[in-house]
Simulated assay, not measured.
Amino acid sequence: MKKEQKIRLGISIGDLNGIGSEVILKTFEDNRMLDFCTPVIFASVKILSFLKKQYKINTNLHGIDKTSQILDGKINVLNVWKEGVDINFGKEDEKVGAYAIKSLRASTQALKNDEIDVLVTAPINKHSIQSEDFNFPGHTDYLNQELQGNSLMFMITDTLKVGLLTDHVAVKDIANTITPELIEQKVDTIYNALRQDFGISKPKIAVLGINPHSGDNGVIGKEDDEVLKPTIKRINESGKLVYGPYAADSFFGSNSYKSFDAIVASYHDQGLIPFKTLSFGKGVNYTAGLDKIRTSPDHGTAFEIAGKNKADNGSFKEAVFAALKIYKNREEYKELTKNPLKKQPRKPQFKGN
């Protein structure tokens, strides 16, 4: 049994030339956040002390060298490195990217070792992180390798949840990538996430078409008729409330999405453009399907405003609260599965903000 303590929330620092450090520090400038969790930032207390002066943020940092030194009620900064870093806001820099990966590796290892309970990742630059020993397009693919399960990019708010069949796949490769096996795997991941992570006992899921107008009965493309429709029918016959394919162009504008607990988009922009249009600044990127919990804000490094003290920490704060809610819901779900006579709640029980 784990000792009674606040949820330990690990944070990877992201690209130091971007806005990650700013939104992290702004989030925990509010001391009330320490009532909900114990933050552990994987970086360097020397660097963060410099950055909080840059942003005129008045908060105390607790520098530590190992997780056994983590203290509740403090903003813990675990020193992944101690040397200085040459920060040039708004610039793409492989050396700075290497520090982002050091932070990510250390925080992921702590998550695997149960030294932290959840992980929130600040934005990285996908070009500057590339190296001989780190060749991943982003966080999700790396975490999928390191943590057990089948990862899925799941963009979430309290009222809108969008999952992707394919994420960082070139448009020309989408149709060939989407197979019945992939559809069944992704839908199953979303279905299970809605149940254990969001407390929805009987989720209702919509699937968007691959082609415009879902292929118009084969006039525009055959993939919807030959791949999506029979697979969705088979899933539906298994007892899951999964419907579609729906034409993507009118699905969000007509408010059809409000009738479902989650929407499955066929590819990246089909799902993320409407999601970010409807919820930018409040959305969270959740990596569903893993045995550990990871969230991140719905924005990137925002080099154009980095270092100017203009970044809005709203999405990062939402990512923190989402991670805490999901952790609480998973713990409750485990108890429910041990004692099935208990009634499963419809809505999450953790109230953070």
Score class of each variant (00 low, 15 high):
K328T: 03
T67H: 14
A265K: 01
I200G: 09
E94Y: 03
N79H: 05
D114R: 11
L160G: 01
D261V: 12
A110F: 09
V118G: 01
E184W: 12
N192I: 00
K351L: 14
F350N: 06
T189G: 05
G218W: 01
A265N: 03
K282M: 13
Y99K: 15
G281A: 14
D35M: 14
A193T: 00
I24Y: 01
K26T: 05
I273S: 02
E318V: 10
I41C: 08
I24W: 05
G149N: 04
I200D: 12
S256D: 09
F252T: 02
T27I: 09
T157K: 04
T337F: 11
S259Q: 07
G20H: 02
L152R: 03
K3Y: 12
H268A: 02
H127I: 13
I101Q: 02
D224Y: 04
E4K: 14
I124W: 05
I129L: 05
Q109M: 14
I124P: 03
V40L: 08
K161Q: 15
N285V: 14
D93T: 00
K2S: 05
L241C: 11
F89D: 02
I232H: 04
P39E: 14
T140M: 10
D197K: 12
E223C: 06
A206C: 12
Q109H: 03
K276M: 10
R234T: 13
D133V: 08
V320G: 08
I178K: 06
N60H: 13
F89C: 01
N150A: 15
T231H: 05
V80R: 00
Y246T: 05
Y55F: 15
K161D: 13
I11D: 07
V320H: 09
S238Y: 13
K126Q: 07
S201M: 13
P274T: 07
V187M: 00
T301W: 04
F280P: 03
L147D: 00
S266H: 02
P203M: 12
L290K: 08
G97P: 06
E22K: 11
T179E: 08
T108C: 01
K53W: 05
M155V: 11
E4Y: 08
E223Q: 12
V264S: 03
F89E: 00
S254V: 07
L228F: 14
G281V: 11
A247Q: 08
T337E: 15
E237M: 14
I174F: 09
T59P: 09
P345E: 14
I75Q: 11
A193F: 00
G253I: 09
I205S: 06
F28R: 04
N144P: 02
F50S: 10
K222E: 15
L278M: 15
G283M: 03
G73C: 10
W81H: 14
D224P: 07
R234M: 13
V264N: 03
